[in-house]
């Protein structure tokens, strides 16, 4: 099943992330080798690749959690590596990061998890406004009933949804999803894919979706690319990327795709 309302020619829109000649190594292992990538306004860009190819490293560099060895990463017009701690924090308000394992705060209830970024970054909000923001993001992920539960009481799919809700509460312009469907059953995967598209439509976000799940890629991506040996191959639609003679891409398709 292909994504509905797929954006045609996102290249005509404004760039929100621009990556040029990005390099990153861990010891002798050169993970990213001169990577170039653009993310355009309100598009979903899927980055595919096998485990350990540096997909998560890429979005951690975009969010400033890791520093690149060389190259430039411009997010909303600001070069990440040149920002001081304070400016980086301000920029992060506009970047939502959904972690592979949700990364919910274990010692807090769902409400407290959602309020956490709000309390620290929207200090002038009244209690009523905070409650409204919490309820509306919970409504967006259809989990209003879990508001007073602890993360340990939630299922894997619910944790993913609450993790996404927590990033949405600051209404970011960019969403970074790290393996959003990893470890979930096929039905929940479809629900999460639907949620990613809903988030794009409702919050007008531009997203990078890191995954090795081809169903997720097909259902959520406006454009798709694949990280192979530290570099991106072609960026395009699902068909454009997989209509290739490159054995590495073909084998990835054959072994992973479940229609």
């Amino acid at each position: 099943m292909q994504k509905n309302n797929r954006i045609e020619h996102p290249e005509e829109r404004e760039r929100v992330i621009t990556i040029r000649d990005l390099n990153k190594s861990f010891g002798d292992y050169h993970v990213l080798k001169g990577v170039n990538l653009d993310l355009y306004d309100r598009e979903n860009l899927v980055v595919l690749g096998k485990s350990g190819t540096g997909k998560s490293v890429l979005i951690k560099i975009i969010s400033g959690l890791l520093k690149q060895d060389s190259g430039t990463v411009e997010v909303l017009g600001k070069e990440i590596s040149l920002l001081n701690e304070r400016d980086l924090q301000e920029l992060r308000i506009h970047i939502g990061f959904s972690f592979q394992n949700s990364a919910l705060y274990d010692s807090m209830t769902v409400r407290e998890n959602l309020e956490f970024p709000l309390v620290r970054n929207r200090k002038k909000l009244t209690k009523k406004e905070k409650d409204y923001a919490v309820e509306s993001v919970l409504d967006a992920v259809s989990l209003g009933q879990t508001i007073n539960q602890m993360p340990s009481e939630l299922s894997g799919g619910q944790r993913k949804r609450i993790g996404i809700a927590r990033t949405l509460i600051l209404q970011p312009k960019i969403m970074l999803y790290d393996e959003p469907t990893a470890g979930l059953d096929p039905i929940t995967c479809l629900e999460i894919n639907g949620l990613i598209n809903e988030v794009q439509e409702r919050y007008h976000t531009s997203s990078i979706i890191i995954t090795h799940d081809l169903t997720c890629a097909k259902q959520t991506g406006d454009r798709i690319t694949m990280l192979l040996d530290g570099q991106f191959n072609k960026v395009g639609t699902f068909e454009e990327v997989f209509n290739t003679e490159d054995e590495r891409v073909k084998s990835f398709y054959e072994y992973n795709f479940i229609e």
Binding site: L65, R92, A103, Y105, D106, F116, R166, L170
Partner: peptide
């Protein structure tokens, strides 16, 4: 969770 705190501008 510490990374999550950092990316939520805390």
């Amino acid at each position: 969770q510490i990374d999550a705190m950092e990316v939520s501008a805390t």
